[in-house]
Lab assay of single mutants.
Amino acid sequence: DNLVIALHSYEPSHDGDLGFEKGEQLRILEQSGEWWKAQSLTTGQEGFIPFNFVAKAN
């Protein structure tokens, strides 16, 4: 599964970004460059996240 966990909170700064809290679990939908499309397992919302704010969940 493409599950990751947030290492830091992220406040969206552009339309289409997905905000999240530290410790939140996300599902990665697309990996492309430094911005990945993800879905929050907490809110169900989708958007782009900075890849270096998350780590693979085990």
Rank of each mutant, 00 (worst) to 15 (best):
P12T: 05
S9C: 08
F48E: 08
H8P: 02
E11S: 10
L26F: 08
N2V: 01
L41M: 09
K37Y: 10
K22E: 12
L3F: 07
L29A: 04
I5Y: 15
K37L: 11
G23Y: 03
L18F: 06
A6S: 07
A38T: 00
H8A: 13
D1K: 04
S32A: 13
E46G: 04
Q39L: 07
R27M: 07
S9T: 13
H14T: 10
P50Y: 00
G23L: 01
I28Y: 06
E34A: 13
K22C: 07
A57C: 08
R27E: 14
P12M: 04
W35Q: 15
Y10C: 06
K22L: 04
K37V: 09
H8T: 14
D17I: 06
K56W: 12
W36K: 05
K56R: 12
R27N: 05
G33T: 09
G19I: 05
A57G: 12
H14W: 07
L3H: 05
G16M: 08
S40I: 03
N52M: 09
R27P: 01
D17Q: 15
F53P: 01
S32Y: 12
Q25E: 14
S9K: 14
Q25S: 13
P12V: 03
D15T: 11
H8F: 12
D17T: 08
I49D: 02
V54Q: 01
Y10M: 06
P50V: 00
H14I: 11
G16T: 11
E30R: 08
L26D: 05
H8S: 12
I5H: 07
L3V: 09
D17N: 10
K22M: 05
E11M: 06
K56L: 09
S40L: 05
G19E: 06
G16N: 13
T42L: 11
E11P: 06
G47Q: 00
S9N: 15
D15P: 12
D1W: 07
W35G: 07
L3Q: 11
L18W: 00
F48A: 09
R27L: 13
N52H: 10
L18Q: 01
S40C: 06
F51H: 13
G16C: 09
E34T: 12
A38E: 00
Q31V: 07
V4I: 03
P50G: 01
E34Q: 11
S9R: 11
L7N: 04
F51W: 11
Q45R: 14
I5M: 08
F48K: 15
G44R: 09
G47M: 01
E30D: 12
G23A: 03
L26E: 04
E24G: 03
G16V: 07
E30P: 02
V4L: 13
A57H: 13
K37I: 11
Q25D: 07
I49M: 03
F51M: 15
G33V: 01
S13R: 13
S32H: 07
H14N: 15
L3Y: 11
F53K: 07
I28A: 04
K56H: 14
F20L: 06
D15S: 10
P50K: 03
Q31H: 07
V54M: 03
L3M: 12
V4T: 07
D17K: 15
K22F: 04
F48W: 15
L41Y: 03
A6D: 01
I28K: 01
S9I: 01
L7E: 09
Q31C: 12
D15Q: 14
E21L: 11
V4R: 08
G23E: 02
P50Q: 01
P12N: 04
D1F: 06
L41R: 05
I49K: 02
F53Q: 08
V54R: 02
K22R: 08
F53C: 10
S40Q: 04
W35H: 12
L41E: 11
Y10F: 08
I49P: 02
S13M: 13
S13D: 13
I5Q: 06
E46I: 15
I28W: 00
W36T: 13
Q31L: 03
G16R: 10
A6Y: 00
Q45Y: 07
G16H: 11
T43L: 01
S13H: 10
G47P: 03
G19Y: 05
E34R: 14
D15V: 08
P12H: 01
D17E: 15
E30T: 08
H8I: 08
H8E: 12
F48R: 14
E24V: 01
L7V: 10
L7G: 05
E46K: 13
R27H: 13
I5W: 12
W35S: 14
L41T: 11
T43D: 06
W36Y: 12
W36E: 01
I28F: 00
P12Q: 00
Q39H: 07
E46C: 14
K56F: 12
S40M: 01
F20G: 00
E30Q: 10
G19V: 05
L26H: 03
H8D: 14
F53H: 10
L3A: 02
I28Q: 00
S32N: 15
Y10E: 00
D17F: 09
W35I: 13
V4A: 15
L26I: 04
K56C: 11
G44V: 02
R27Q: 15
N52E: 14
E24R: 01
L3K: 06
G23V: 00
D17W: 12
G44Y: 05
Q45A: 12
G44N: 10
W36M: 12
L29W: 01
L41C: 12
E46Q: 13
W35L: 13
E34C: 08
L18T: 03
D15R: 13
K56G: 11
F51Y: 13
W35P: 06
G44H: 07
F20W: 00
W36G: 08
G16F: 07
K22V: 09
E34P: 10
A6L: 01
T42Y: 11
G47K: 03
P50A: 00
A55Y: 08
A6P: 01
G23N: 13
T42S: 13
G33D: 05
A57E: 15
N52R: 14
L7C: 07
P50H: 05
G33R: 03
E24M: 03
P12C: 06
T42H: 12
D1A: 07
Q39R: 14
L29Q: 06
E24S: 05
Y10K: 11
S40A: 06
F20K: 03
I49Q: 02
V4E: 03
L3T: 14
L26S: 01
F48G: 04
V4Y: 13
Q25H: 11
F53V: 08
Q39P: 01
L7S: 09
N52I: 01
W36D: 04
N2H: 15
S40G: 02
S13A: 10
F51Q: 14
A6V: 04
W35E: 07
D15I: 09
S32P: 06
V54N: 01
W35C: 10
F20I: 05
T43R: 04
E24L: 00
S32Q: 15
K37E: 06
S9A: 09
S13K: 15
S9D: 12
N52P: 04
E34W: 07
S40F: 01
I5C: 10
W36V: 12
I49L: 07
S40H: 11
Q45L: 11
E21C: 09
S9E: 09
L7M: 12
L3S: 07
H14E: 13
G33L: 02
A55I: 12
W36L: 12
A57M: 10
S32M: 08
F20Y: 02
I49W: 00
V4F: 13
L29R: 04
L26P: 01
F51V: 13
G33P: 05
S9W: 00
E11K: 15
G16Q: 08
Q45W: 04
R27F: 06
P12K: 05
Q31A: 15
L29E: 06
S13L: 14
N52S: 10
K56S: 14
A38G: 05
F53R: 10
E46A: 13
E30W: 05
K22W: 00
F48S: 07
Q45I: 03
A55K: 11
T42K: 15
T43H: 04
G44W: 05
E34F: 11
G16A: 07
L18P: 02
F53I: 10
E21A: 13
A57V: 14
S32C: 14
L26C: 00
F51K: 15
G23P: 00
I5V: 15
